[in-house]
Simulated scan of single mutants.
Amino acid sequence: MTGDWAGLLPVARAAVALGTRIVAERAPRSVTAKGDRDLVTDVDLAVEDAVRGFLARETPGIGLLGEEHGRSGPGDDTLWWVLDPVDGTANLARGSPLCAVSLGLVAGRRAVLAAIDMPFLGTGYTATAGGGAFCDDEPIRVAGTAALPDAAVSLGDFAVGEGAEPKNRLRLELLARLGARAHRVRMLGSAAIDLAWVAHGRLDATVILANLPWDTAAGVLLVREAGGVVADLDGTDHTTDSAATIAVCPGLRDALTGLLRESGGR
């Protein structure tokens, strides 16, 4: 599917800017559990409501999938927005600045446009398919790291809820092996930041053993447009249907793939 994705970038930037203002100006007043160790705040809900309304007015022919309220708008899945109103809700609820408003435009099963803002860090990232990746309008590239002992690698959150224990065995094994070989291991609590920082060369790789489109779609495009590689756990090309999200600078792909295999990930 082809289209003028760059023409929708101003809309995406305005949408995340709207969300960013709400996050920056409104401290959470209520925190509610929506599952096992899965939180939502009144700020998440306010951002999603505001951005949904804005996009419905600006792009009425494009549906939206949001973390808090599911799908709305046209039922055609060939082109759709995906929104995480606050990626890193647990961080926000505790006063940590590591959270982001993440918006992607997906054509079929791959993101073609991305806008991510980090309200408390004053940083914004954008990308369009074939148009490159940018931080505050400056082009960005993934790192040139080629050896695990030189690499900073982030991990996604541990699984929670029913069935979490077997899922976390791989995470624990991978954590142990990375801890023994990588320069540094980080767990930031925000997939959008993990991926944006891989694109920007602030991290060399991230291993997120999950793939919720609102968490990952925008960041995946950033990494690809910055010259990185994004794959599923089995090494196939990443799409919105993938089970996991493995993003890495090209020089580390083989080393990280081998480590995942040793950990039982293949």
Rank of each mutant, 00 (worst) to 15 (best):
T126Y: 01
L103D: 10
F120K: 01
G161T: 12
L39R: 11
L18T: 03
T257Y: 05
G132N: 03
E262P: 09
P10V: 04
P60D: 00
T236R: 15
E68G: 08
A176K: 12
R171W: 04
L8T: 02
G66A: 11
A151E: 02
C99R: 03
R94V: 09
P10C: 03
G70W: 02
A182L: 03
L148R: 02
T2L: 12
L172C: 04
A107R: 14
T239M: 08
M118E: 15
R52P: 03
R253F: 14
G53A: 11
D49M: 12
E58V: 06
V112S: 02
L103N: 08
G122D: 08
L233P: 02
G235S: 10
V229F: 11
W214H: 14
L188C: 01
A255H: 12
G124M: 05
V51N: 02
L252A: 00
T32D: 12
T123G: 01
A247W: 12
G95D: 09
N91Q: 08
K34G: 06
D150L: 13
T20C: 06
D36S: 13
L212T: 14
E225C: 08
L212Q: 12
V82R: 10
R52Y: 09
E48V: 08
A115W: 05
Y125W: 12
N91F: 01
T2K: 12
A243N: 09
L98H: 06
S154M: 05
E67R: 04
T41C: 12
F158K: 10
G227C: 10
D215P: 03
T2D: 10
K34R: 15
R94N: 10
C99L: 15
D194T: 00
G124Q: 07
R13I: 09
I193Q: 06
G61T: 06
G228P: 06
A164C: 13
T257V: 09
D77P: 03
W81S: 05
A33W: 12
L175S: 11
T89S: 12
V153R: 03
G3F: 10
L45E: 15
G235N: 11
T78N: 10
G251W: 02
V51P: 01
A196L: 04
P139R: 08
S154E: 03
L209N: 06
A226K: 07
G251N: 02
G73D: 02
E165C: 01
E162Y: 02
E262D: 15
L252W: 01
F120H: 04
A192V: 07
P119A: 06
R110N: 10
L256C: 09
D84T: 05
G228Y: 10
G189M: 02
L92G: 01
L105A: 11
L121F: 03
G53V: 00
G19A: 04
